[in-house]
Write a protein that binds this DNA or RNA. Structure first.
Lengths: 210, 210
DNA sequence: TGAAAAAGCACATATTTATGTGATTGGTAA
DNA sequence: TTACCAATCACATAAATATGTGCTTTTTCA
């Protein structure tokens, strides 16, 4: 029996969801609330398997509610429920430890399936949400490409600079004179359009040259 | 009619999948291959809606294949197919622009559903994969919480250092004497366990203090 | 209430960095 | 074959940085 607690401000939808879930084999709704002002206590008291949390609620919103839950309980599965698949909330919810993210327009049968999936450790997502997540993910790891066409030797030097080596140490490590290190670094600064070691290091991090 | 091209080295599975998909209403398999050595030409020639790509193949593997496809075509939906939900491949596939990631043990009905979902712009994922993706996502954006308990003023100074300001400029910007800037920086170095500006900058980036 | 931080300032000095000018060598592309 | 560039080294100098010691004043916290 999957124990569910529900947070949804719209009375019709709250009742409808409660009846749907509670009336289905294998599911029970322990409680449902119209806001998550006391979500911590409530989740602790009921100890549900799954919390269904509306995002857009007056007072403490769903994301805040999720954070509150996570501050005391990292086990309970939290399914975020929303009307729109807008980017910002999806991102924030996932960051805050949501287990799934589904649209309200999801058909009833699918909804129950999603709840079971969440309860058994899955991460149910409406297709459009999943698409967004993947897109965000590849964006995060995209970028770089800041080429600056540094020569091989220059890349080596830059790398050592980033590692915190001094000119003297770099010279020793690369078996070249310190003046050669200077030459390389000067060239690197020109190419990166900077004029100090720390700026070069910062740029290396920003543009993922490291 | 959803047009599918299949890449799978195991002959039995390849035949099985072809028969399943091709035999289903609304789906057609244009071609199936046992490796993706000529994936670029093949995808261009067939122009499918969905490519199903096995990850573990001899020769050019699925990830490489995906990258090859993406180098010439960003529209076709690519569904990655694998036996294991191992972390590294999932990550790499998503980074490279996969549209979905499903396990081979997925039941036939579900498989067809996933293909349709991919074709219509969704991002079908096996539950265990979705869970992983969410986990990775929240890890990537985790705070890292490298605290070091810097004081407010020290954080300001560090921030300006990272921005590339010299001591003199920081002094001017913060309306304090350059010697005070030195004091702060010395303290910062102690707290971060570094002893140069560029090391501090590097650490700030690494530990997301910026 | 009293010690500990935090923030501010000053002076001194050694080291490191930044910048300039100039030269040699070997590879490579027009 | 000439011209360019990467890589190497040298000498010189100014500016910036790192480090040490020492001194107020204010805030914080046990």
């Amino acid at each position: 029996m999957i124990k569910v607690v529900l947070y949804e401000d719209n009375p019709q939808l709250r009742e409808g969801l409660t009846m749907l879930i509670d009336g289905s084999e294998g599911f029970t709704v322990l409680a449902s609330y119209k806001n998550c002002d006391h979500v911590k206590d409530e989740v602790e008291a009921w100890n549900p398997d799954v919390v269904m949390m509306d995002i857009d609620m007056p007072g403490t919103n769903g994301i805040e509610g999720l954070k509150l839950i996570r501050s005391v309980n990292t086990d309970v599965k939290v399914l975020m429920l929303t009307v729109f698949d807008d980017n910002k909330n999806v991102f924030e919810a996932i960051r805050s430890g949501a287990n799934g993210y589904i649209l309200k327009k999801t058909p009833p049968a699918k909804l129950l399936e999603y709840i079971s999936e969440a309860a058994s450790g899955g991460a149910p997502m409406t297709a459009s949400i999943a698409t967004q997540v993947l897109k965000m993910f590849s964006q995060v790891n995209e970028l770089k490409s800041g080429d600056y066409n540094l020569s091989e030797r220059e890349k080596e030097v830059l790398h050592l600079l980033v590692e915190g080596y001094s000119y003297k140490m770099i010279a020793a490590k690369m078996f070249i004179a310190i003046d050669t290190v200077r030459s390389h670094i000067k060239k690197i600064y020109e190419k990166l359009h900077v004029n100090s070691k720390s700026e070069a290091v910062a740029k290396a991090f920003k543009d993922r040259l490291v």
